[in-house]
Amino acid sequence: MKRVSVDDVENSVQPAATMRPLTDALGLTDVAVNYYELEPGDSFAFAYHSHEVQEEAFYVVSGVATFETEDGPVEVGENEVVRFGRDEFQRGWNRGDEPVRALAIGAPLEYGTQAKLRYCPACDTETESELRAVPDGDGDENGRDAVVAECVECGAETGRWYEGSTDGEVP
C-alpha cells in the first residue's frame, strides 16, 4: 500500500491553477492519476487532443467542467464521470464562475502518439502543435519555468504557460 496527501505532491506547470501528478507519488505502473483544481477560464490540457493508446476518465469532485468534443460541448457536474476513448478528441475547461476540482484517470499509463490541435494565428487555422519545456528559470524575466506550444506547420508560438500561472492561452 502507498498513501500520499495530494497537498504534498508538487504542482506541475499546466493551464490549470493546480495539477498534481499522483502517478509517481503513488508508484503506479499501469494507470495515470492526476488531481486538478481549475479556476474560471482554466483548462485540463494544453490543447484539444487525443491519445492513441490511453483512454481517460474525469471525475468531477466539485464544480462543472465543460469538455470540447467532436460532438460539441459536454458539461460534467459534481459527482459525475466522463470517459473518452482512444483517439477521441477532447479538452476540458472551467467555463463557470466557481472552481472545479477533479481527478483524471488514464489507462494504460502510456499515451502512445498524442495529437494536439491548437489555433495558430500565423496559419489562421487549427494545426498540430508540439509542446516543449523551458526549464531552469529560462521561461521569463522572473526566472519561472515554462511550457511552450509551437505550430508544427510554421513554428509560431501558440501558447506559453508559466510555473504558478495559467495565463498561457494568448502568446
Rank of each mutant, 00 (worst) to 15 (best):
F44Q: 04
Y35F: 13
T69E: 09
C123M: 04
E98C: 02
T158F: 05
E98K: 01
V53I: 07
L103D: 05
D136V: 09
G96F: 02
Y119H: 15
A65C: 11
E39K: 10
N142W: 12
V53W: 01
L28Q: 09
R160E: 07
Q90M: 13
P135E: 06
R160K: 12
V9W: 03
A16S: 14
K2D: 07
G137S: 03
P40C: 03
A65S: 07
V152Y: 04
L117I: 11
R132Q: 15
Q114P: 14
G159D: 02
S43V: 11
G139H: 05
M1F: 15
V4H: 09
Y111I: 11
D145G: 07
Y36R: 01
Y36F: 14
T23E: 03
E169M: 12
T166Q: 06
L117C: 06
A107S: 07
V147F: 06
C120H: 05
T69I: 06
A16T: 05
P99L: 06
G41L: 05
F84W: 10
A45W: 09
A32I: 08
H51K: 02
K116N: 09
Y36V: 08
G143W: 00
D42Y: 09
T125S: 13
V61M: 03
N79P: 10
D136F: 15
D7A: 13
A17L: 12
Y119K: 00
G41I: 01
D167S: 13
G168W: 00
N94S: 00
Y48R: 10
N34L: 14
C151Y: 00
D71S: 09
D30K: 15
G27S: 12
A104Q: 12
V76A: 04
K2H: 15
L22M: 07
S129H: 14
G96W: 00
G164P: 11
D140H: 10
Y111V: 05
E157L: 00
G137V: 01
G139M: 01
A57G: 14
R144L: 10
E56H: 02
A133N: 13
V76M: 07
G159A: 05
D140L: 14
H49E: 08
G112D: 07
A156P: 00
D140G: 13
A149F: 13
V170L: 14
E88V: 07
R20W: 04
A115G: 15
S129G: 13
P108K: 01
A122L: 11
Y162M: 00
T69P: 00
V74R: 03
G41A: 07
F67C: 06
V61F: 14
V31W: 02
E68F: 12
Y35V: 13
A122C: 09
R20F: 07
R144H: 13
E98M: 00
R118N: 13
E157F: 04
A122F: 02
Y111M: 11
A107L: 08
G106F: 03
V13F: 03
V147S: 02
L38N: 03
R101F: 14
D24K: 15
D138W: 10
A133M: 15
A149E: 05
R118W: 11
Q90V: 12
V60T: 08
A25Y: 06
D97E: 14
S129R: 00
V31Y: 09
S50D: 05
Q54R: 06
D24S: 14
